[in-house]
């Protein structure tokens, strides 16, 4: 059952996604790996909002089926994007937790968060050979 579209909410979400993405790209251009990760977190939220918005913003009840019925009786919101976003948030949370731990361990061992100075896997003298 389709419910009423809310174009003004969709426009607002689109702007929020744009702002988040812009801030994310700005942060990710930094040499500092921590800034890069913060940018990544913002970008991942922008992507989650994109998925959410692609399910269309509608005014509707929660997608619940009453006991004994086979389908929702009233107009309901699209539940699939919410399920997708929930999965994406959980996965993104795990990956970012790993990335932050990796950044910390990297800082502890390498004494730097500047990606230009991280030359342990590819030492500079290789370039001249």
């Amino acid at each position: 059952m389709l419910s009423r579209r809310r174009p003004e909410l969709e426009a607002l979400t689109a702007i929020v996604i744009g702002v988040l993405t812009a801030a994310a790209v700005y942060l990710m251009l930094a040499r500092n790996f921590m800034r890069f990760l913060f940018g990544l977190i913002l970008l991942s939220n922008a992507v989650n909002l994109t998925i959410f918005a692609s399910g269309r913003m509608t005014k509707g009840a929660p997608a619940l089926v009453p006991y004994g019925a086979d389908a929702p009786v009233s107009v309901v919101g699209n539940a699939l994007p919410q399920a997708l976003v929930l999965t994406a948030i959980v996965i993104g949370f795990g990956l970012l937790a790993f990335a932050l731990a990796l950044a910390f361990e990297g800082y502890r061992r390498m004494q730097t968060v500047d990606t230009d100075e991280m030359r342990f896997a590819e030492p500079k003298e290789d370039a001249t050979k």
Binding site: A99, L102, T115, M118, F120
Partner: peptide
């Protein structure tokens, strides 16, 4: 160190 360095680039 080299694995952590490589890991950071790969992960990012």
């Amino acid at each position: 160190k080299d694995r952590l360095d490589a890991g950071i680039k790969y992960v990012a």
